[in-house]
Design a protein around this nucleic acid. Structure first.
Lengths: 259, 259
DNA sequence: CGGGGAATTGACGTGCCTCAAAACCAGTGG
DNA sequence: CCACTGGTTTTGAGGCACGTCAATTCCCCG
């Protein structure tokens, strides 16, 4: 390997050149600060499908940003049954829930071939106390995570099974679109069982509802490839804009059966 | 009102004299820093039952600490149906989910007569950047909130109705005990409908299960006063230590019906 | 003592889970 | 090129935990 190649690799994994920069860094950041950040971000060996980024209980050393691919985080109960907390796409910070106890509270596993940026916590806190606005940025990211969790709770607690699936697909579409993907084409990186677990449904129910949405010509599904055919219908099903829908006038209960 | 009384009131609401100090402040904090904090904490007019601390959508100006009483936070969907996100007891910070968008994402309402400490966000961030460890403390608090939310999700997603109620009571018992209350005596500040909503159950189900736990001699209930009679049984029911229980060998499903 | 919200209790219905089996697909090796 | 294997996904039949509806009962409070 020549020096030139090394330099290229170096540049390629620096924040300055990263296309995801606007996702993990605060908006106004000058060149000097940026290079300071570059110094402390390390690239990790890429993860293969199913490989673990960290385990619950592990001492907190670093936080991670997904660079490409995707990661699921989940907790396990005593019987070994998992509850998936979230799916993390490129540009998203992983590990924030470990800051309370200085130990990871959940497992993080790659859903596909995935590359990761790593920042050690002491360095991160150090930089945060020095670069104005960065401390605030961290708080913002954590707060955003809180809001996400609340949305997840509402998703699983207050929506019918079909509504959950529709909302899930819409959210994924939005997030991938935000990363520059076409918004009608969703390449799922997770298995049906992961989707079911995340939505608190049985795997068979998810499968059936994918079929139903397909029958309704709202999406087309082939294995893990989903195409959205009718966004407005999907929105309607996800109860996201409810513009005078007629057919499914369910009573909206304080705590319905499905949640 | 005399000057002496004013001074007493002043002292009483200062952080230095607050019995909850160890809850909202980082452990090692010196006298000078403490008085600096005192300067920026304001007491608010007490809230009556049902009164609102802030509404979703309101611009973020301050964060709040419950001083006495309790608060529920909740979001509302388009149909006006609520989903309760959490109950906040004395010493707990409220409003952290507003830091992402500089606007409150949920409503906060007092469940009983409640007193509140208020800190404006600019002042808080200012102090955080000056007092070493305080920035970290804020991140810790937010992280703890994340962990709480994850526990709430597991509670509603993976547990049977009876298990949820048991786990809920145990958690409340623990939290009040931590505040110096007797751990077997739980004075609920919220209505059955709030508990039901928080646990994603129908209000009738909660009522029936309170009755069932009472029949089983695990608790005694009279209106909003709950006494725990058998902690180990309650733990068992909450699936918190599962020591070879025989009777209810449910299959633990990937996504059971109730969630 | 009477009005009204909160809580309880009972009868019944159903959305989703469970169990079971078939279909599908990717990867492997003959 | 195709049969073989194992995991994933789909499809069907039936059951149950919890929701819904409706009617009391219980308190709190004026």
């Amino acid at each position: 390997m020549t020096l030139v190649q090394l330099d290229l690799a170096q540049i390629k994994r620096s924040c300055s050149a990263c296309s995801l920069r606007h996702l993990c860094l605060p908006a106004p950041i000058d060149a000097a600060d940026l290079s300071r950040l570059d110094a402390l971000v390390r690239a990790r060996r890429p993860l293969k499908t199913g490989e673990s980024l960290y385990l619950a209980g592990a001492p907190l050393r670093s936080l991670f940003v997904v660079r490409s691919g995707s990661v699921k985080t989940f907790v396990e109960d005593k019987e070994g049954e998992a509850q998936i907390l979230g799916f993390h796409l490129p540009g998203e910070l992983v590990g924030l829930d470990a800051l309370a106890e200085d130990a990871h509270q959940c497992h993080a596993v790659a859903l596909e071939h995935t590359t990761i940026c790593e920042v050690t916590v002491p360095q991160l806190l150090d930089v945060a106390s020095q670069i104005p606005g960065f401390q605030r940025h961290l708080l913002r990211l954590q707060s955003r995570e809180l809001v996400r969790d609340h949305e997840h709770l509402v998703l699983t607690s207050r929506l019918q099974a079909l509504e959950r699936v529709a909302a899930f697909l819409l959210a994924l579409s939005r997030r991938y679109h935000h990363l520059g993907h076409p918004e009608n084409r969703i390449q799922l990186s997770m298995a049906r069982s992961d989707i079911a677990n995340y939505l608190s449904l049985a795997i068979e129910t998810v499968s059936r509802l994918f079929g139903k949405l397909s029958d309704m010509k709202v999406i087309s599904v082939r294995r893990r490839m989903v195409h959205v055919l009718d966004f407005s219908k999907l929105h309607e099903l996800a109860r996201e804009h409810h513009q005078g829908d007629a057919e499914h006038a369910y009573p909206i209960n304080a705590g319905n059966q499905a949640g």
